[in-house]
């Protein structure tokens, strides 16, 4: 049976499709193809040469490190928060949900400012940090903290929406059958949420790799030490080396594409899981 909706005149359909490609082309394709065109304008040899540079490599390493650490910590937090919010009823739950979402709508510039105020020389914590030689801002920890902040809600959000949908009956049944907390989590909950978890991880990774504003305020731009890939791209661009800047952007784009394909695959898995559950 074909839905009535699809019985549209071919003219209307092709008009709509043209409009779709037009909107998509202007908003998405044009800027992204500029990156490809500019990045490859000096040929593939130059493209690889950009990465032979130790400064670019160290920036890549730092970006990967900050991304991995923030993803791990956000996964732990996301699972805990989702568990807490979906499995229990308590006063202040909606406030807690709002607070978890808060970092979404805080400007990266403000993130940079508040971390500067907290860990910089203005702060009451500063003498203590100095005593133990803990350099937070203008060093790797600050970059990691800022990355965690901007990616804070991603894992928790995608878990909460799925776990709310699935309800608590399976966990309650497991509990009544005598399972303990860890068993419930690993044997009952985890198999149901793993794709949503991976989905959250991909969003978190994508966002973490590309973070610019917050990191640019607290990184200090020390070459070879605290420059992340996005900051390195800006520097290359500023050094009259636009081609190299766009080359590195292409690498980031490719990484992002891979991650987003994983995400799409997860989404298909999630729909399978939920439709299985409905049957």
């Amino acid at each position: 049976m074909t839905p009535i909706i699809h019985k549209q005149t071919t003219l209307k359909r092709s008009l709509l499709l043209t409009l779709t490609w037009l909107v998509f082309g202007v908003i998405f394709l044009a800027p992204l193809s500029i990156i490809l065109i500019e990045g490859l304008s000096k040929g593939l040899g130059f493209f690889w040469h950009t990465f032979a540079n130790p400064v670019a490599l160290s920036a890549l390493k730092l970006t990967l490190f900050a991304t991995i650490v923030s993803v791990i910590l956000n996964v732990i937090f996301g699972v805990m928060a989702a568990w807490c919010i979906t499995k229990y009823e308590f006063v202040g739950k909606s406030l807690l949900t709002t607070l978890i979402d808060l970092p979404f709508s805080i400007s990266p510039i403000i993130v940079g400012l508040i971390y500067t105020l907290l860990y910089g020389s203005q702060s009451i914590l500063y003498p203590f940090l100095m005593e133990y030689n803990l350099q937070v801002i203008y060093a790797v920890p600050g970059i990691v903290l800022a990355t965690i902040f901007v990616t804070f809600p991603f894992v928790a959000r995608s878990l909460i929406s799925l776990m709310q949908e699935q309800g608590n009956t399976e966990e309650e049944a497991a509990r009544l059958l005598g399972a303990n907390g860890w068993q419930i989590f690993w044997l009952v909950t985890f198999p149901n949420i793993r794709w949503a978890l991976l989905h959250g991880v991909t969003m978190c990774t994508a966002r973490a790799m590309g973070e610019f504003g917050a990191v640019s305020i607290i990184s200090g731009h020390i070459e070879g030490l605290t420059n992340t890939l996005p900051l390195q791209i800006e520097i290359l661009y500023n050094e009259y080396n636009a081609t190299a800047a766009f080359s590195i952007s292409i690498i980031l784009l490719i990484m992002a594409m891979i991650i987003l394909f994983v995400r799409q695959w997860c989404e298909r898995k999630i729909t399978h899981v939920t439709s299985d559950a409905e049957q």
Binding site: P31, L32, A206, M209, G210, I233, F246, M257, L260
Partner: peptide
């Protein structure tokens, strides 16, 4: 459709500075 669908999230993953440079170039 699949291509569009997979590229929708790219602006999220792209460093905003790159987006700015690309858009200015454009």
């Amino acid at each position: 459709k699949k291509i569009i669908d997979s590229m929708i999230d790219l602006p999220l993953a792209l460093p905003t500075a790159i987006a700015g440079i690309a858009l200015t170039t454009l």
